[in-house]
Design a protein around this nucleic acid. Structure first.
Lengths: 206, 206
DNA sequence: ATAAGATGCGGACCGTAGTCCGTTTAGCAT
DNA sequence: ATGCTAAACGGACTACGGTCCGCATCTTAT
């Protein structure tokens, strides 16, 4: 991005790096990818790697960006129940289920993409999910601090925890999805006064 | 195995290290404490630091252990509503509120005590909280996968997220506590009936 | 007191993420 | 072609967490 076009050598190196990164991950797993090895494998200097991606987490995010974009497209514009058209509760349930599959599929990568600093929650994709959940909560009539409630729900879908449950405690993925469904149901449909069946529907989605 | 006792020089060095660590944190903040500086400040070798505490996270946990033990005592044996005697729902609410205060008080430290690996969830204190929450959920009649539900609730109380909300988004601590109360209320007091008719019965599933 | 063995010590060493800065090169204007 | 400049490059360098292992010290049995 930046000003205008990318210089040709820069573009070439970016491709070289992405290719090398995918190979390396294929061979050694995401955890086995180090910035030094990547640079060597791609035949460029280490400085170049950081110039391109900023950090290891940035690289991982770049590698995930395609599938990430596809996921975003699906929950924002795709068919129900994930996309607009279904009741907010169902969309939330579907969102979690998809996210769980996503994390289990791209496991290590998704985890490696989470930097270990605060800004981890400020990354564009993360704020998008957060806003999405918040919007759905509002649409579902949850009036109690949707921002924080969305944060709580997001935290449940954190790759680190999800992978911990699956890999260390051998929790079945369906069980995760079911628990998410349970959680969302309770959060959405059970304010001080039982139901709030009323509709909202609408509009909020965008 | 020569008994259990600690060799005198080891004991001395442990005190030296803890003292130095507290000073360093006082002066530079938890993030400014590095193992090298700590070793130098305490006048011992680096190997000694790791021999004592195993890792940086281990050191931080040791530093927190007093207040941590005190907290554990309060929620396990102390007076209601935190301790036994109050209804489970109230105990959960109190637990979260206390934990939030705790994290805000020991902020950086609590965060630094979380190693960045999976085992972060396996640390004794963490499994204790988890079990405590799980137990309260069961006592409150939540039959749907209390283990995972406890995990979701725990994730809401994660130091990293809590501090992010407070430091980056300037969320007031009371607002955190209030949102926690809201969340717990919904999780606990939603009969499963409302939007989820059929509560699958089977209380006995485990 | 002394010797023997367990325990602890220290700091050189390693792998890693990330930075810095002198050098090279692409792209453009002439 | 040539020269200029901003961008990109590369790899030495730093800081950090963590490991290793030969050496020193404490403890205990004699």
């Amino acid at each position: 991005m930046a000003g205008e076009s990318e210089r040709s050598d820069a573009a070439r190196n970016r491709e070289l790096l992405l290719k090398a990164a995918r190979e390396l991950i294929e061979e050694c797993g995401a955890d086995g990818l180090t910035m030094d090895r990547l640079a060597e494998r791609a035949g460029v200097g280490k400085g170049t790697v950081f110039r391109r991606f900023g950090s290891r987490a940035g690289l991982m995010m770049t590698l995930l960006s395609d599938s990430e974009a596809e996921f975003q497209g699906r929950f924002m514009f795709g068919p129900p129940p994930l996309g607009p058209g279904a009741p907010p509760r169902d969309r939330l349930v579907a969102f979690g289920a998809e996210r769980i599959s996503y994390v289990l599929e791209y496991g290590e990568l998704a985890r490696a993409a989470d930097s270990s600093a605060y800004n981890r929650f400020d990354v564009p994709a993360a704020v998008l999910w957060h806003r999405h959940i918040e919007m759905l909560l509002r649409a579902a009539g949850v009036t109690a601090d949707p921002w924080l409630m969305a944060m709580s729900l997001s935290s449940t879908l954190d790759p680190e925890r999800l992978l911990y449950a699956v890999r260390v405690h051998h929790v079945a993925p369906e069980r995760l999805a079911e628990s998410w469904r349970e959680l969302v149901t309770r959060v959405v449909s059970c304010p001080g006064g039982v139901a709030d069946p009323m509709a909202h529907t609408s509009a909020g989605d965008r």
